[in-house]
Design a protein around this nucleic acid. Structure first.
Length: 570
RNA sequence: CGGGGUGUAGCUCAGGUGGCAGAGCGUUGGCUUUGGGAGCCAAAGGCCGCAGGUUCAAGUCCUGCCACCCCGACCA
């Protein structure tokens, strides 16, 4: 490709609206263009990267026995009403009506459609198992799209679905996908972590996420470096600690004016946060108050709260509701003097803490030296504590590491969540009708582009791994008005194509610095600079990843490169 | 959905207390230049987010709306 004719437009300015490195670089490098919040267009080079990722995924899916198909984007409401998700999915579902008033949604995921397709053809155990996938655009009306391709409202996804006769068979499909995912992310040169994930409210059997560790992720993950344990933070079980050995001191009511945060209280009383009892009040279904008590230096993980409460319909009480329920203000909530009818849960972190500071639901006062047994009794213990660095590994007790994870893949053993309500049944050898056991397996493809950039860039630009680079080689002609340089560059360009190297030839009439800066920004793994040294029969070969440069004879350059590219693709 | 911020040229931004619409980059034409986002000359380019209001006069002040970004909540 001749750059002078190619639709590729980079920018010298830092994009104003971007924060994450991948977002900045993809915009600045002209790979994507924003249309609206969370909606992006791919330019020709951007599409080249996307297609390469797709093809790597396609190859591995095919290899594991999955069959590609293409489902519809515009989906009738009826199917979604069959599974109840028309209502359950909520406002994230993009919906619309046709001219006759019939309702549709733009598919955010395709369990309903695939199940409908499969049930219409599959009716015998002899036809199972079955593994189908598609690479398709998805729509989710996210509350807050962000970080470019990382969280979009329209995005490209590979989604696969498995159909099996029984759970054991389904587990095999699940494991097959797990291995395929491992291979895919390795090929994409993504350093991912497989973490155990929540099976969620729909009661699946097993679930894993494949995440990359980055500040621009949305999940908190915990992993253990002593054993193999790794999990989404929301499912890391945290137990009770050891009981403190400390003589109980005398209970006292202390005036603590406006000390309404743990920090203020801690410094005011000279008591460490871990000795302060924190209380938070939630309202379930907007009415029923539930109090959680937790150690002052820890935070509540609302995903864990959801599991305790068995519903996602809860929220923190507002100031006015605190007053109505407890006659107190924020910062002065505690387990004392509670009215009837308030459920109270103790987080495991509070177990065994002696001489605590606790509130008594009276503004501007706290108790100090509260001791369980003497001043109050424990209630029901639960685990709602957000995992933190250094917490004990649930498997081996070693201190856990934590980080933010960007979820690239999620595999899920669904069971009969969709096959049962949609009556996707097969006839077993005994002649009974049984629901198929399903699994679903997603990879956020457009998000992978961002993840790759997050993991492969420097302050000058992107460093694409060769397997996904828009072009493997950039031939830079330093001085396009120099006859000799021009001829050599042209010749190398022609030859590189014959050799099957994906080449962009920077024949633009621009200054050398301009072209070098673009080359760094756009991240070609290799560059041949055709400059002054052509007089000595040499060109310069540069490696974007290592930064190495070497002068090589013109005739040898492409052979050498070909070998390096082959090596990268292995 | 709560909090914060920003909307002015294709891009990045400047335009105290109301008074002719600006710069750099990019674009077009010309000359020079050619190993790290070149120089000089000339030119084109605007619904100042939208709507209303105050005023002799609004990019600027007031009201409402919209869009985008960031933090939080949310994220089968």
């Amino acid at each position: 490709m001749r750059w002078s004719r190619y639709f590729w437009h980079t920018s010298k300015e830092e994009p104003a609206d971007a924060e994450a490195p991948s977002h900045k670089l993809l915009l600045k490098g002209g790979f994507v263009k924003q249309v609206s919040a969370g909606i992006y267009e791919f330019t020709p080079p951007g599409l080249r990267v996307l297609r390469k990722i797709e093809n790597i995924i396609r190859k591995e899916m095919d290899r594991s026995g999955a069959q590609e198909l293409l489902l519809s984007v515009l989906n009738p409401a009826e199917l979604w009403k069959e599974t109840g998700r028309w209502e359950l999915y909520g406002r994230e579902l993009f919906t619309l009506k046709d001219r006759n008033g019939r309702e549709y949604c733009l598919g955010p995921t395709h369990e309903e459609e695939i199940t409908d397709l499969v049930r219409s053809y599959i009716n015998s155990y002899r036809q199972l198992p079955l593994l189908l996938y598609q690479i398709q655009v998805k729509f989710r009306d996210e509350k807050r799209p962000r970080f470019g391709l990382i969280r979009g409202r329209e995005f490209i996804m590979k989604d696969a679905y498995s159909f099996d006769t029984d759970e054991l068979s389904a587990m095999i499909s699940y494991e097959t996908m797990k291995f395929a995912y491992d291979r895919i992310f390795k090929k994409l040169r993504l350093n991912t972590l497989m973490v155990e994930a929540s099976v969620g409210a729909i009661g699946g059997i097993s679930s894993h996420e494949f995440v990359v560790l980055t500040d621009y992720g949305e999940a908190r993950v915990a992993y253990c470096e002593s054993c193999v344990y790794s999990a989404n933070g929301e499912i890391v079980a945290l137990g009770k600690g050891k009981e403190e050995e400390e003589e109980p001191r005398e209970l006292q009511k202390v005036y603590t004016p406006s000390m309404d945060t743990i920090e203020k209280l801690s410094s005011f009383l000279g008591v460490p946060a871990r000795k302060i009892m924190k209380a938070v009040l939630y309202l379930v279904n907007g009415r029923e108050p539930v109090m959680f008590l937790i150690r002052g230096d820890r935070s509540v993980d609302e995903n864990k709260v959801e599991m305790v409460l068995g519903t996602e319909n809860f929220r923190l009480a507002e100031d006015s509701e605190l007053w109505e329920t407890l006659r107190t203000r924020k910062g002065f909530l505690g387990p004392f003097n509670l009215p009837d009818g308030i459920r109270v849960y103790w987080d495991n972190s509070l177990y065994g803490v002696k001489n605590m500071v606790a509130a008594l639901n009276e503004p501007d006062y706290h108790y100090i030296n509260v001791n369980v047994g003497r001043d109050l009794s424990y209630g029901d213990f639960v685990d709602v504590c957000q995992v933190e660095e250094g917490d004990p590994c649930p498997k081996c007790e070693a201190p856990l590491k934590t980080g933010k994870g960007l979820e690239l893949g999620h595999i899920f053993l669904l069971g009969t969540r969709y096959s049962e309500p949609m009556r996707a049944y097969y006839r077993d050898p005994q002649g009974h009708d049984r629901p198929m056991i399903m699994g679903c397996y997603g990879i956020g493809i457009s998000r992978c582009i961002s993840a790759i950039v997050e993991q492969h860039h420097d302050d000058r630009g992107i460093k694409w791994p060769t397997v996904v680079a828009p072009f493997e080689l950039d031939i830079v002609c330093v001085n396009t008005s120099d006859q000799q340089q021009r001829e050599v560059a042209e010749k190398l360009y022609m030859l590189s194509q014959e050799l099957g190297i994906e080449t962009i030839y920077d024949d633009r009439d621009e200054s050398p610095g301009f072209k070098f800066a673009d080359a760094d920004l756009c991240g070609f793994p290799y560059r041949i600079v055709v400059g002054k040294k052509v007089k000595e029969g040499k060109v310069e070969l540069q490696d974007r990843h290592t930064g190495e440069r070497q002068d090589v004879e013109i005739e040898r350059a492409l052979e050498l490169l070909k070998g390096m590219i082959e090596e990268d693709k292995r």
